[in-house]
């Protein structure tokens, strides 16, 4: 907490310098935020992590001059990442809209053919569960617990009031616990795990349409 202030000030200086054309400042800022941004996309759109990380970094240079200085650089960077994510989802969501209640989660949006490789079995399940809660909730949980942002900062990144973020985080934890419970029970069940919810839903759709 004590070194929070100076770091933040450094980040601001680096961002200003980069926008002004200082490449070395840019490299430092890149080193500081690469992992944050990479991790953000890796847990959501694994197959496009690299592209989206790159777009975010490029947008950061383009729009760095818009940085108001009211929030932190960290939430500014993540705000850009959130917009890049939204844009990406919109681009691919157009032809495959699903209107069921859970559809806004990564898993149900059919994102990412691959599993994350996490350190141990519990974490693997946790990452899976995260991918099964609505995306907005997933983002809130990750930014809070992984990136250590507080509700105000998350609110800045997502463009919503902090109170909404607090509600959402409570809700997210409830959902996450449900999903986690279901995953632990379901680990042995072929229907839900072996086939994967994604393919199962797709099967159903095709069965109905092909009728």
């Amino acid at each position: 907490m004590n070194d929070e202030q100076p770091t933040e000030q450094q980040d601001r200086r680096l961002l200003q310098a980069w926008v002004a054309g200082d490449r070395r400042a840019g490299e430092q800022l890149y080193d500081r935020y690469f992992d944050v941004v990479y991790r953000f996309f890796r847990s959501k759109i694994p197959e496009a992590t690299q592209d989206l990380t790159q777009t975010t970094m490029e947008n950061l240079i383009k729009s760095g001059s818009n940085f108001q200085g009211t929030g932190s650089v960290r939430s500014f960077v993540l705000g850009i990442a959130v917009n890049v994510l939204r844009h990406h989802l919109r681009a691919r969501g157009r032809d495959r809209l699903e209107l069921d209640g859970e559809a806004a989660s990564c898993e149900d949006l059919g994102l990412g053919p691959f599993e994350l490789v996490a350190g141990n079995q519990d974490q693997k399940l946790l990452v899976k569960a995260l991918r099964r809660i609505p995306l907005e909730h997933q983002i809130v949980v990750e930014l809070h617990y992984w990136e250590g942002l507080n509700s105000r900062e998350i609110g800045e990144a997502l463009g919503v009031p902090a109170s909404t973020i607090r509600d959402r985080r409570q809700r997210a934890k409830v959902l996450l616990r449900q999903r986690l419970g279901a995953l632990m029970d379901g680990e042995q069940r072929v229907e839900s795990t072996l086939m994967g919810l994604r393919t199962w839903a797709a099967d159903l759709r095709r069965k109905i349409r092909g009728g």
Binding site: Y30, R42, T49, Q50, L116, A118, Q123
Partner: peptide, 19 residues
């Protein structure tokens, strides 16, 4: 911490390529 053990390699490539 979410250490993504098998992922460091891919991450490294992304880091270098974007850089």
């Amino acid at each position: 911490p979410m250490v993504e053990a098998g992922d460091g390699f891919a991450r490294g490539i992304a880091y270098e390529t974007i850089r």
